[in-house]
Design a protein around this nucleic acid. Sequence first.
DNA 1: GTTAGCACTCGCCGGCTTTGAGTGCTAACA
DNA 2: TGTTAGCACTCAAAGCCGGCGAGTGCTAAC
Lengths: 345, 345
Amino acid sequence: MDLNDRKKQILQAIIDEYIGSAEPVGSRAISKKHELGLSSATIRNEMADLEEMGYLIQPHTSAGRIPSDAGYRFYVNSLMKRYRIGLEAVERLQSELAGRLQSLDRAVKRAGFLASVLTDYTTVVSAPAGERAEIKKIDMVPVSSEAVTLIIVTRNVRSRLINAKLSFDECENIAAVLNARLRGRSAEEITYDTIRGIESELCEKLSVQPKLLINVLHFVYDAVTEAEDTEIYVENAKSILQYPEYRDIDKAREIFSFLDDKSNLKQLIAETGENEGVNARIGGENDPEIMKDCSLVTVNYSLDGKAVGKIGVIGPKRMDYAKVFASLDLISHEIDKLLGSFSGG
Amino acid sequence: MDLNDRKKQILQAIIDEYIGSAEPVGSRAISKKHELGLSSATIRNEMADLEEMGYLIQPHTSAGRIPSDAGYRFYVNSLMKRYRIGLEAVERLQSELAGRLQSLDRAVKRAGFLASVLTDYTTVVSAPAGERAEIKKIDMVPVSSEAVTLIIVTRNVRSRLINAKLSFDECENIAAVLNARLRGRSAEEITYDTIRGIESELCEKLSVQPKLLINVLHFVYDAVTEAEDTEIYVENAKSILQYPEYRDIDKAREIFSFLDDKSNLKQLIAETGENEGVNARIGGENDPEIMKDCSLVTVNYSLDGKAVGKIGVIGPKRMDYAKVFASLDLISHEIDKLLGSFSGG
DNA sequence: GTTAGCACTCGCCGGCTTTGAGTGCTAACA
DNA sequence: TGTTAGCACTCAAAGCCGGCGAGTGCTAAC
């Protein structure tokens, strides 16, 4: 059944009100604050209809109404007004994002942080998935008499400390062989046989103790093929405590525990849509029990035209969707731009 | 005035009890649960004395007593029993700590995490302060047609992305010059003049556009001299919510905000003792207002025999000091061992 | 179709009482 | 002289109204 214009207006008014106050909203409030030119009685009738249609819920007889999941869904799809982010905010965002850049991961983490500042909700971001990241260079540097740092440069830089007594020159020699064999190849192409080959070459050419070598190669193999275990960053988790729906400490604790476990978050994020643009999962649309009275709004960002990660905002169901949508839209575009400037070729 | 043995026993019993229950403890409870062979009336008299001496506080007339800051201090200094950490816990800790090691920073962060698991309190750790970290190697690698990664290896690895169109060979050449000039020097030794020198050498030898070069050198200078801004890691902040003293959401929020701001933490951590072994700051001994009903227990860890960072546990004043002391003692020794195996020379 | 009016519902709040844990004091006891 | 049983007293917390008021649904009039 379709909603007529007036019902839409009323539904919108109720949701707007509730988003602001977190209190059930009554007919009188709507008739007074929103200039619909209708008496509270009329509103009441309409509200009764809207409740019957499933868009509103009455917590108890003598209270006002609050939106149901379906109500929010309708709001997000058809009612919500476009939010305009202030120009200074946009500029500040751009300049903060552009600051010195350590890595793509860091850039994305910062984007998540900025999203949390912009929206004042908790954000979750997944770092760029690095599939088929090609090895650009491998380096080995002794950092003390006892330890060597192994550095692998792909799209980003990974490093690992190895207990090994190797001189600077030995490192250079080993690195040269590694580079000759591995440079330009993507991690998946590298098998244990590849490493075997390297091992025998090294044994022949260099006078390094084989035992040490095995150790080093083990680390190389490990680091190179490492299941590009996408990092997940959570920012501003504390903002959860600020919403009345989490006045209950135990509930808040549950959420914190949930957010602390990256595997939860990976799954949560993975379940969200792959399509373009900003996407919302409202309340019960989320799978994990604890998330059923939260909403999760996500957007994909891309590198070389391919979606490689997500930025998500987690907040109460009555979050300011308009603002969140606008913020994520903005941020995803900015991060796309930024990443674009570092990719290509 | 000194405490006789019986008073000590009673004080200890009260504090032990209170640490467990978080409720004011009454004379009857002590006389029953702790086998002192004294009636509640006698305990009452002693408690009155202990209160007068400043070790106990009575929240209101008809409640039991809780320890004062002085009470806790006395407990920590003289009463607390030695806590023994289980052997499996020790072994688990050692194996978890020894896992693949990305950097010293990471190792320490993990130590903080493990401390939080062991104690179930919030932990704060400061990464090894890198003063006089000597430059082992500088590397430049093009990662796309548009970007170059600049890598600086000191005791750890820092990297930075630069927008620059440079070929692999150009990068190698520039890096060679940088290495020749900078390798083996510590960050503080490098002045803007040094960089000027490199600039002119590069301009002479190589046919790189000067403008691009300036950009690159700017980054080098920046990355090299970067105020080795010690990282601070907080783990298990959520555990705060589990203690009845933070049932009040607003109080919890304050703490979270405090913990979110690294500058607060740096200062907090800096204020703690430099001496050997585990150190406690109890309640009012802490400076920040919000920390006045928390305790902070810290320990230094060292690299090359010099204290370079701290691991701290933050919890309610009635934390399980014995356990925390034992845990930090253990962890600091383990991390010292671990770091030791990567230093030297 | 809209609205004023009205009876009704029910959670919330403030004040009241009750309960009980815990105290200090006193007097008797070893 | 130190210890203990007994007792009156205190006071926060919990339970228990009762009134308030926001909000409703229904009805009747416009």
